[in-house]
Structures are given as C-alpha cells and as structure tokens.
Design a protein around this nucleic acid. Structure first.
Lengths: 137, 137
DNA sequence: ATTTATCTCATACTAAAGTACCAAAATTCT
DNA sequence: AGAATTTTGGTACTTTAGTATGAGATAAAT
C-alpha cells in the first residue's frame, strides 16, 4: 500500500514536471507542437500499459469458460459435468455417487470424453481442457 | 486477425483525426494548450490500458511457483519433476521414458507424491498442486 | 567415515481406469 | 408421432495406476 502511494506520488510529480517542461519548450520554440503532443501521448500510453500490467490478478477464482469450444467438441451437458468432476480429482465411483448414476454410466461418459478431447488418459483430458479454457477454474 | 487489423486501422484513423482537431482547436484559440495536452494524454492513457487488457491471457505462460510450499511438503527434486509430468497428462510409462528410469521407479515416486500431497489419485494430486500453486503452468 | 536422505528397481498384489459392444429409457427436435 | 440424440447401465475384458515391501546405489550432510 505504501509503495502504491509512493509510486503514484512520483508519477503525479513527474507529470507536473512534464507539463512544465513541455510548455516551456514550446514557448521557447525549440520544437513544434506536434512533437510535444506526440511525446506526451507516448508517455501516457506507456503509463497506461504500466498501470494495467501492475494489477494482472484475475477478478476471482472463476475463469471464463469457452462455451464455443465445448460445442465444437460436441461435448454433451452430462459429459461436461463429468469432465469437471474429473478435473476436481474425483474417481469414477465418486463421480457416480455425486451425480446419482452408476459407475458404468460414468465410465461410458469418460470414454466418450476421451475420444472427443482426443486424450488417452483422464489426466491428459484435464491438461487439454485447461489448454482449451473449458474448465471454470 | 482481420478484426485486429480493422481495430488498429480505426485507431490510427482516430488518432490522426484527433491530431488535426487538436491543432485546429488550438490555432482557433478556443482552448488553452494545457487542456489539449491533457486531453491527448488522457486518450492515450486509456488506449494503453485498452491495449494491454486485450492480451492478458498469454502474458503468463509460466506462473510463479511457490517453492516454499514444495519444501514444506518435503517433495524431493525428482518427485517434483514427476509431479509436473503427471500434470502434463503423461502415464507412468511415458514419464519413465522421459526421465530415463524404469516404470517401477516412477511408481514409487508417484506413491510418495500422493502421500506427501495427501491425495488418493494422481488427478487429485494435480488439483491439489494447482491449489497450492506448485506447478509452473 | 558414517549416518541420512534420495534415487533406483524389483516382485507381487489389489484397485481403478479404460475399451468394446450392446441395449433400454428419456429427451429433444422436427 | 416419429426420428435423432442423450443418458443410462450392463457384461466382459485389457490396461494402467497404486500399494506394500525390500533392497542396492548414490549423494549429501555431520
């Protein structure tokens, strides 16, 4: 927090200085007004870049889900649910209990998921899903 | 891609227009130079913000790794390597080939990893590792 | 130099995961 | 209503994952 205040203070100071300098430079006629404006624009452009780089943290734990990709992969609603539970580290049995279906059902879902994601294992399915930003975490 | 080009084209056009307007406005003496400069600065500041917001997705292909947690968990160097390969979706055999060891060795490493991470399965180990921000991706 | 921790590998076993194939309900679409 | 899709679940089988135990080899610390 202290650091942030300090940085902002310095930035404000630097800007005020910049204004003074630019005005003085213009009045003294060393440069044309276009160049000064371009310079100012450039400086503020990079300040904008810097500021937003400083707070790259995501809004929260929930990421954006790429629903388009899910449809492209022909993942059904149920299959997607199972995929999410896989990514949470649950076993087939645990998923079956959570979704109130038999383990056989979960297995068929998993097989279909692996085919659609072109994965050999559930761990690879997790990796691919993260790559495609399909998972909500 | 087309979209990006279009947006950039529009931005360049807008900026050229802005320059013309600002110069004309200044010459006509409607506003002082300070206000014009401030306006330009503001516009470019937000352009900077906008640009860097547009590509925040792949800025961090590599995340920060919590080395402290790794030591707290008593994960050895080799175990950590295996853990990373697990998270990449590799099978025990594939990990063994990649690290030039036998599958047995990988299995013992995996077992130790599961104990240390307090996980029942490798998928859960992945989930926990992500939670603890141990993985470099 | 001797303990300590890590890395290695083996065997034998159990458990879970995954495949292949089939088929009956339940939904959704037309 | 009829067709297509999804969901469900079963059997039988193969493969991979994981446990338990032991033990030799290596490297690092005291």
């Amino acid at each position: 927090m202290k650091k942030t205040i300090l940085v902002f203070g310095l930035i404000v100071l630097a800007l005020l200085l910049l204004f003074k300098i630019s005005k003085h430079t213009y009045l003294s006629g060393d440069f044309s007004i276009e160049i000064i404006i371009a310079f100012i624009a450039l400086v503020f452009f990079f300040i904008g870049l810097f500021i937003s780089k400083k707070q790259p943290k995501h809004t929260s734990g929930t990421k954006e889900v790429n629903h388009k990709k899910i449809k492209e992969l022909n993942l059904s609603k149920r299959e997607y649910q199972v995929l999410c539970e896989i990514a949470m580290g649950l076993s087939n049995k645990e998923i079956a209990d959570k979704l109130f279906v038999s383990e056989s059902t979960v297995k068929t879902h998993v097989s279909n998921i692996l085919i659609k994601l072109n994965a050999k294992r559930r761990t690879q399915a997790i990796q691919i899903s993260k790559e495609l930003q399909i998972l909500p975490f």
